[in-house]
Design a protein around this nucleic acid. Structure first.
Length: 114
DNA sequence: GGTCTGACCGTGT
DNA sequence: CACACGGCCAGAC
């Protein structure tokens, strides 16, 4: 057996898969939803390996400002922005417009808060 | 097995 | 308002 996933990573991927179409969330929100508030960096790092999963929309995960901080990690130059725009999300200057309106908080939407 | 790094976030000066 | 620093956890060397 391929030695189970790194627990935390698996949770991050699982949560990322639940991000609705046309919506975005932040690394911190995911971390907080997983009960690892403060370890948002880990979420970003986990996303680094998300490229290995076709069902993990890493492009829907931004930082708290709604900025495409990880766009440089996508193949090409503006693939991340392109993917978001295809979902109807307006991106300008690497920043999502109406971010707060498109923001999808897993804690609220999925009721992760205890 | 210790040390550095990382697609972040919050607070302090 | 701009910059610095600490913290969180896991992976790579």
């Amino acid at each position: 057996m391929p030695k189970d996933n790194t627990g935390f990573f698996d949770k991050v991927y699982d949560l990322a898969r639940q991000i609705p179409y046309g919506r975005v969330t932040s690394y911190g929100a995911i971390a907080r939803a997983l009960g690892a508030a403060g370890s948002a960096r880990m979420v970003g790092w986990a996303m680094n390996g998300a490229s290995n999963y076709d069902d993990v929309p890493a492009h829907r995960v931004l930082n708290r400002n709604g900025v495409l901080t990880g766009k440089h990690h996508f193949p090409g130059t503006d693939l991340m922005q392109k993917l978001l725009e295809e979902e109807g999300i307006v991106v300008k200057e690497d920043q999502v417009q109406d971010f707060k309106d498109l923001f999808w908080d897993p804690v609220t939407e999925l009721g992760f808060e205890d």
